[in-house]
């Protein structure tokens, strides 16, 4: 079965309607962000993407995974749905002017288009709220 560029790979043998989108971005902050501020931003972003997916009639979150790399370390965050909480850990220890963020959003019973839109719009919303610029590094 052909592989789709947008990140959804229809599974050959099963009809479980899983759609995913992943990409890497550079986030340039308007001022240096502390590790705590980055964690708040990450939590807000994941919450925003989940809400957007559920609004678009996704049946549930498969998995939303983030990896953020700064000069002073990394943060890893993931959720299987806000009902189960958000897991976060990492080693970022200093103020960061910019970070690289890699995200994989996987949702259940929704279209790949909706996963793509929910993720990208979530990122734009959070960028406006926290004052940073987003650059695509890989799409």
């Amino acid at each position: 079965m052909p592989h789709e560029d947008r990140g959804e790979v229809p599974h050959e043998e099963e009809h479980i309607s899983i759609s995913g989108y992943g990409s890497t971005f550079l986030l340039r902050f308007s001022r240096p962000f502390s590790p705590e501020e980055i964690k708040v931003l990450v939590a807000d972003f994941i919450k925003t993407v989940e809400a957007s997916l559920m609004k678009r009639s996704a049946k549930g979150i498969g998995h939303i995974k983030l990896y953020i790399k700064g000069r002073s370390g990394y943060i890893r965050a993931d959720t299987i749905g806000s009902k189960y909480g958000l897991y976060m850990d990492g080693t970022i220890s200093e103020l960061e002017g910019s970070v690289q963020m890699t995200i994989n959003t996987i949702a259940i019973h929704t279209t790949k288009e909706d996963v793509f839109i929910a993720t990208r719009e979530g990122l734009e919303d959070v960028a406006k709220r926290y004052g940073f610029i987003v650059e695509d590094l890989k799409s």
Partner: peptide, 28 residues
């Protein structure tokens, strides 16, 4: 499944030897 290997990046932070195969499923 996705095009970008989040899990592989996390694993490599622990100094572990990792190879990632992305953009599809290794069972098919």
């Amino acid at each position: 499944i996705g095009d970008v290997p989040v899990d592989a990046k996390v694993v490599s932070e622990y100094g572990l030897k990792v190879r990632d195969i992305g953009g599809g499923c290794i069972c098919c």
